[in-house]
Amino acid sequence: MIRKTLDGLYTAAGVLAALCLIIILTLIVLQMLARWTGEVFPGAPDYAGYAMAAASFFAFANALMKGSHIRVSIVLNALPPRGRYFLEIFCFAVGTAAAWYVSYYAYRMLGFAIKFNDVSQGQDATPLWIPQSTMLVGMVILAIALTDNLISLLVTGQHRIVRDVTDSQSE
């Protein structure tokens, strides 16, 4: 039950990231149309920037679980299995701690934006808690994914990262 929920969370975050990319495309096309017709679309670059940040943070956990993050496999492959195991534990522990640390400070930053009614500097004057909340949610999902992998590695000896692409050299 928990496994399905977590995998669904990572997939949902990936879908949200893809939707943010579609929003960016739509905003760019609308801004182009506005320019061609002589109209003004105030705030379009700002909204595209917010969607870009949201897409990035929502994609982190999904990319991790699909094996799309950069890993230094050359070092891991050079180590014996026991050394590899301990290095992976170390890396996941550091990554997990860093992700939760960033999540905490993103939460504090969001709190300050709400407390001080902070708005963007652009023409749109968007309340900053809106784009900052997407950053916080994406970062928390990444922290959960790293914690999930660390616990899985400690309990079963294997992390849950699965590569999407097949390596032609392994055949």
Score class of each variant (00 low, 15 high):
118 D>I: 10
72 V>A: 12
59 A>R: 00
144 I>G: 01
166 T>K: 15
170 S>P: 01
157 G>F: 07
169 Q>R: 15
160 R>C: 06
75 V>E: 07
44 A>Q: 11
123 Q>L: 14
11 T>M: 06
73 S>H: 13
65 M>W: 00
168 S>T: 09
39 E>L: 11
133 S>N: 06
40 V>N: 12
148 D>W: 07
15 V>C: 04
115 K>D: 14
59 A>Q: 05
86 F>N: 03
77 N>H: 13
89 I>G: 01
86 F>Y: 15
149 N>M: 07
5 T>L: 11
166 T>M: 12
127 P>W: 05
98 A>H: 01
161 I>T: 10
5 T>Y: 12
47 Y>M: 15
124 D>Q: 12
106 A>P: 01
29 V>T: 14
68 S>E: 13
50 Y>Q: 02
153 L>C: 06
161 I>V: 15
112 F>H: 09
8 G>K: 10
109 M>I: 15
4 K>P: 03
158 Q>V: 13
45 P>F: 05
70 I>Y: 02
100 W>S: 09
101 Y>A: 12
134 T>P: 00
12 A>E: 01
79 L>Y: 09
87 L>D: 05
91 C>T: 15
118 D>A: 10
29 V>L: 14
156 T>M: 01
67 G>C: 10
20 C>Y: 04
122 G>W: 04
127 P>T: 04
43 G>M: 06
3 R>A: 08
52 M>W: 01
107 Y>V: 12
